[in-house]
């Protein structure tokens, strides 16, 4: 039996207007994100995947359309919706006035934890993300991998139902990348829903339960990685992606085609 979606995007349009120019970042995107899975948003640079994840993360406003959380518009009570989500944006956005420990502690207070509860949660996360030796360090003193760990740890302080990761492994070395993959797998195994925006196809293949390929602001296909590979008769997602992108260029140079080949989630 299919479970009701955690997030539903309903005809989401996003147009950026500057001076006399309009850029259509999203063109009527509709999709459902089920609970308890890793849902990867894939696409070339400028395809609209970060715009979509930002709208779901309440970091951008759609021009039209709606986002539903468990069937209710998130704009009905934004503050309440934000209680249920954790966000790791592309830019880590960590100020240097606080130490790693303070970052986590205050994040706990922001989400309504008491001082004691926040201290306990901070200690728990510091241990879970092996940040013990950096407890009193400033974010600028950390390597890229550890900074990313801190951002993920910060977004988990309040045990969100949905975690939104926007290009979490960009700029990380292969070892740090693999470590982060383990973290994501661990979170999924605990039942957390994850939206993973990435342009690393191997990452999506490795981690995602469902893949949504976005091209020129439109959903091109939504399917499981296995379904996509068997449907296109390819060995890996990268080949599928390249084929889809090539067909998109051949069929519609203006990017107005909306071909949904995979199985809708």
């Amino acid at each position: 039996m299919a479970t009701s979606p955690l997030i539903s995007c309903r005809q989401v349009v996003k147009t950026y207007r500057s001076n006399k120019k309009s850029v259509h970042a999203l063109r009527s995107v509709s999709l459902d994100i089920p609970q308890g899975c890793v849902f990867a948003l894939l696409g070339a640079n400028g395809a609209g995947k970060t715009t979509l994840s930002s709208i779901i993360a309440t970091l951008a406003k759609p021009t039209s359309g709606d986002i539903l959380y468990k069937g209710v518009s998130i704009y009905h009570d934004l503050a309440d919706y934000r209680r249920h989500i954790g966000i790791c944006p592309q830019t880590t956005g960590l100020g240097d006035s606080l130490t790693i420990e303070q970052h986590l502690f205050y994040q706990g207070l922001y989400y309504g934890l008491s001082q004691e509860a926040s201290t306990n949660r901070t200690n728990e996360l510091i241990k879970q993300f092996t940040l013990e030796q950096y407890r009193a360090s400033k974010p600028s003193e950390l390597s890229g991998g550890y900074r990313q760990r801190l951002v993920i740890a910060r977004s988990l302080v309040h045990n969100p139902e949905l975690l939104i990761l926007d290009e979490p492994t960009v700029g990380l070395d292969p070892h740090a990348r693999r470590n982060l993959w383990d973290v994501i797998r661990d979170l999924r195994s605990k039942g957390m829903s994850i939206i993973l925006t990435t342009h690393y196809l191997d990452e999506a293949q490795e981690l995602a339960d469902h893949v949504c390929i976005i091209d020129k602001g439109q959903v091109k296909t939504i399917a499981t990685p296995k379904e996509l590979m068997s449907l296109h008769n390819k060995q890996n997602l990268e080949e599928v992606f390249v084929e889809l992108m090539n067909s998109s260029c051949d069929a519609s140079p203006s990017g107005t085609t909306n071909t949904t080949k995979g199985t809708n989630v």
């Binding site: 503050a79 309440d80 934000r82 209680r83 989500i85 966000i87 944006p89 830019t91 956005g93 989400y111």
Partner: peptide, 12 residues
């Protein structure tokens, strides 16, 4: 660096 964006996702 946009640290403000973290604050803009808080439950307020």
């Amino acid at each position: 660096s946009k640290t403000i964006l973290n604050l803009c996702t808080l439950p307020i």
